[in-house]
């Protein structure tokens, strides 16, 4: 790897291994993810791409049998260091999940939840401002501004997912992890979210797991291809899709495996 890439990297991992009870889910993955870009993780289901994503904000900690070894650094700091509090880490590394999961609260409270627990607002006015800004960034403000106090679960699927994105943005993260954010959405909602992702990369570094190659090609600048727990190939999205180096990547792209 070149030195310039090293210094630019927002997230860098070296030799990451993940074990569940008796399966070896991630095998020696090293990758450098740049700031203010969209990086896509692709691969057949069960290849470990979601597991790897969940290592980046230590969501795997919540699974008892999961063991993570190796080195994951964000801005040069080892996030698995004993001194790191996962709570602080997750405020910095936001996450959007596969299925829209708004809390059973109002739209406003959904977005305000993160800032409240992290104490980001000193008063109600500031909180209002954060909520509005987040909803605007998530392209939901126009639809939601008149019904901020109605329950978040009453929105449509695509709106719910954008609400979850707004909720994640509200804690002012630097990195946004998205775990197949469109898999539960219809094509129109998907298009809206993809458009949003494009917008988001201006302020965050976005890592997105997707099972759709077309989506990866549409939204990302960098793509990593996982297969059976290995990182097979990582590079510019254009190159991966037009001229992959590894035969396995080629088979996947052309639809022979996966």
């Amino acid at each position: 790897m070149k030195d310039t890439q090293m210094t630019n990297a927002k997230i860098s991992t070296k030799g990451v291994q993940v074990h569940y009870a008796d399966t070896h889910a991630i095998k020696d993955v090293s990758v450098e993810i740049a700031d203010k870009t969209v990086t896509a993780f692709i691969g057949p289901s069960g290849c470990g791409k979601s597991t790897f994503l969940r290592c980046i904000n230590r969501m795997n900690d919540t699974i008892d049998s999961c063991r993570v070894t190796g080195d994951i650094r964000i801005e040069g700091e080892d996030i698995y260091d004993v001194k790191v509090d996962p709570v602080q880490l997750r405020a910095k590394v936001g996450m959007v999940f596969q299925k829209p999961n708004p809390f059973p609260k109002s739209i406003y409270d959904n977005v305000a939840y993160g800032p409240k627990i992290h104490g980001l607002a000193r008063n109600k006015a500031e909180l209002d401002e954060i909520v509005e800004k987040s909803l605007r960034k998530a392209a939901l403000w126009n639809e939601a501004k008149d019904r901020l106090l109605s329950p978040g679960t009453g929105l449509s699927g695509g709106q719910q997912q954008r609400l979850c994105i707004a909720r994640a943005i509200a804690t002012a993260p630097e990195i946004l992890l998205m775990d197949e954010p469109c898999s539960a959405l219809d094509p129109i909602a998907t298009a809206q979210v993809e458009e949003l992702i494009d917008e988001l990369q201006k302020s965050f570094s976005v890592v997105i797991v997707t099972h759709s190659m077309q989506q990866a090609a549409r939204v990302s600048q960098k793509t990593a291809f996982f297969h059976l727990g290995n990182l097979v190939e990582y590079g510019d999205t254009d190159k991966i899709f037009t001229n992959p180096e590894d035969p396995r990547t080629e088979s996947y792209i052309s639809g022979r495996i996966g």
Binding site: K83, D85, V87, Q88, K92, H118
Partner: peptide, 14 residues
Amino acid sequence: KSLLTADVRTKKRN
């Protein structure tokens, strides 16, 4: 903000 040092608020929350 470094991740390696817990801030006051986080300590309280913990």
